[in-house]
């Protein structure tokens, strides 16, 4: 298990390094420098600006500087707001994003898994059909359409919930729902398929024939085994949630990292985009790393397989 963990850790660090290098190269592939688009400034000031951001140095020096800064936990300074660092923005915005993301994830996983289990258990009955209709809608309707329509219906039309903002439980209902719905749908579908698969296994028939109640068969023999494949999609789901926060935070005016990121994209604030991307990537790779470890723990077969196949 230790060897497996170390190998996964190695992969994670390597991938992160690759992403950092890629972002660096991409950002330097942009023609001109970040100040060419600004209104004409005297050459001396331009040089000064370039010098301030270290952009007058040779590329490899910049790269080594950049890497060492990141290793020291410094992601750079925003190019549009020179008095703000990327670290500050992350420190300020990420707690909100993590909060809304966690709520959405809890909502999506609990409701999604329950729906999936019930749908499999009541296969081809009305409950199954309803659950799958919800799932298909959840997959088909983009989250910003869901979010905007919910906002319109519940706040403008019926005035039940606050329009924007973050802090109270009431304010968190709509964003969590809009953010979690897609994930919920994927969860429900996967869980249903996985449950149906397991329900056909011999050991379930054995459990049934030795007289266990349906409840016991489902809880002790089916869900336990059916939930395993679900663990593998947790990585992509975290991606879903992260990209979802970009959208949902904008709609509901949550001052999170996603909102800053979209703002940075609008402003073409290169350093901020770069820093945030690396932060997101690190977060994501860490999540995938945890999922891999968890999977190795619950399913010993994974650890034994050579990395090659």
């Amino acid at each position: 298990m230790l060897a497996y963990t170390l190998r996964r850790l190695g992969y994670m660090v390597f991938t992160l390094w690759l992403i950092i290098t890629l972002t660096f190269l991409l950002m330097h592939a942009v023609p001109g420098d970040p100040f060419t688009s600004e209104k004409k400034v005297p050459e001396a000031i331009r040089q000064n600006l370039l010098h301030k951001y270290g952009l007058d140095l040779p590329l490899h020096v910049q790269y080594i500087r950049y890497l060492s800064n990141i290793l020291h936990g410094d992601l750079g300074i925003s190019m549009r707001y020179p008095n703000r660092t990327v670290n500050q923005m992350i420190a300020q915005g990420f707690p909100y994003s993590a909060d809304v993301g966690a709520r959405a994830l809890v909502f999506a996983i609990s409701v999604g898994l329950t729906l999936g289990v019930l749908a499999a258990f009541y296969r081809d009955r009305p409950l199954d059909r309803t659950a799958m209709v919800i799932a298909v809608i959840g997959i088909s309707v983009p989250n910003f359409v869901v979010g905007t329509l919910l906002q319109y219906l519940f706040t403008v039309r019926f005035k039940l919930l606050p329009v924007v903002g973050w802090g109270t439980f009431k304010q968190s209902i709509l964003p969590s729902f809009a953010l979690g719905l897609g994930t919920l749908a994927v969860m429900a579908r996967m869980m249903r398929a996985s449950m149906l698969d397991v329900l056909n296994q011999d050991y379930v028939r054995t459990a049934q024939s030795k007289g266990l109640s349906n409840r016991e068969v489902i809880v002790r023999h089916t869900i336990r085994n059916a939930i395993l494949p679900i663990v593998t999609i947790l990585g992509p789901l975290v991606v879903n949630i992260i990209t979802g926060t970009l959208v949902v935070e904008r709609i509901f005016g949550i001052p999170g990292l996603g909102k800053h990121y979209v703002q940075a994209v609008y402003n073409l604030d290169y350093t901020l985009i770069m820093g945030t991307t690396i932060f997101y990537a690190a977060l994501l790779l860490f999540a995938i790393f945890l999922v891999d470890i968890a999977y190795g723990l619950v399913d010993p077969r994974i650890r034994l397989v050579k990395p090659k196949e």
Partner: peptide
């Protein structure tokens, strides 16, 4: 495959 493509796509 290990690179989160969506982030890279936004960056591109």
């Amino acid at each position: 495959y290990a690179i989160p493509m969506l982030l890279l796509m936004i960056l591109l």
